[in-house]
Amino acid sequence: MSQHAGTERLDSGLAHAGVRSYVSGFAISILLTIAAYLMVTDQVLPTGPLIAVILVVALAQFGTQLYCFLHLGTESRPRWKLLMFVAMVIIVLILVLGSLWIMRNLDSRMTIPQQEQYMNSQQGI
């Protein structure tokens, strides 16, 4: 019994979880994975919107597993794990989106025409 009490504090999310959480998380993840896969292999949308959709699907699966497998957001207050997760997301968005913006800007401005021509002719499809 004391061991059970210990694991309650150990990972408060795990303490109140049930098999249902994992089964539903698993099932939803499978569906989302296959959905995204089929959308791409069957090319159901033009590339631009397709990419946007599969990104949304990925985020949905991400959120599903965060909640169902990692029980994020179920801890008792203060919600430090959630806070650290949000902080990480903010930093990651800054770093990744920032880098993409900066590098796209730099690469387009700092590539001389001959180089660009060469790179385009070499572009594998």
Binding site: I94, L95, W101, I102, N105, L106, R109, M110
Partner: peptide, 18 residues
């Protein structure tokens, strides 16, 4: 401090917006 790092390479050639 995570939003200023480009000031170390203003002269690398990014545009005025960046």
């Amino acid at each position: 401090s995570f939003t200023v790092w480009v000031h170390h390479f203003f002269t690398m050639g990014a545009g005025a917006d960046v």
